[in-house]
Amino acid sequence: MRLARFRLGGSLLYLFSAVWALITLYPLVFTAMSSFKTTDEIYSAPFKLPSLYSFSNYARALFDAGMLRAIGNSFGIAIVSTLSVILLGSLASFVLARLGLKFGNAVLLYFLLGIMIPVHTTLVPLMKLVSGVQGQNHYLTMVLIYTAFHLPFAIFLISSHMRGIGKELDESAALDGCGPIRLFASIIFPLTMPAIATAFILTFLYVYNDLIFAVIFISDKSMFTIPLTMLTFVAKSLTEYGPIFASIIVSIIPMIVVFLIFQERVVSGLAAGAVKE
């Protein structure tokens, strides 16, 4: 009797898991299927597999809507910004976590404050600042802004990992005549690799997915990132369902790949970020 009830409970839980997985994945599957269909087919047979796998929607999305160029822009900006976050963030973390300076904790707190600040509060003054130096439509502007906004979380991840490394290392390195720069580059940085990898992946993900800074600071079409390109394409060709679905698929595939490869890091890192706020 008790066993039967347990099994029933277990399979109910299983059923619920399956239902929520369906709710999560089906819209993505539907989008993928529709990306191969003609508009007529999307309307007349929304639940069926495409009658033939035509890539003409993808050609339209990539070339006419400019998704190919947008992918280049988004990846370029995301990679350079991420490298800059990692470089500046790990250098700062080293100072704050390893050198035992008097003001170290205060400065660390100052950086961590940035995690709690809502992005939108900064928009008008940032725009004033950027337009004051004619900085709109510059890759450098985007990179610097993304660096500033993602440094706090990277410093949080990297410095807490660096703190955990034994202090004896620094002392024996110093005895061997190793200066702080070498200590950082050849000992501490490599030992912090796990946290740096997490910070790298998350920063890349955040920058790649960003909408608001691109909306505010990029108006030159040749610099459009993926979100801007998609929004302009949809506004212009609202009825071209096939190409729109194709562009959605094109923009999410890189993130799905990153997620599947680095799942544990992405999950734990994003959860840490959410908790930190």
Binding site: T24, N209, I226, P227, M230, M255, I256, F259, L270
Partner: peptide, 9 residues
């Protein structure tokens, strides 16, 4: 999965 996808898409 949805957490990592671009919000715009």
């Amino acid at each position: 999965m949805p957490v990592v996808l671009p919000m715009t898409a």
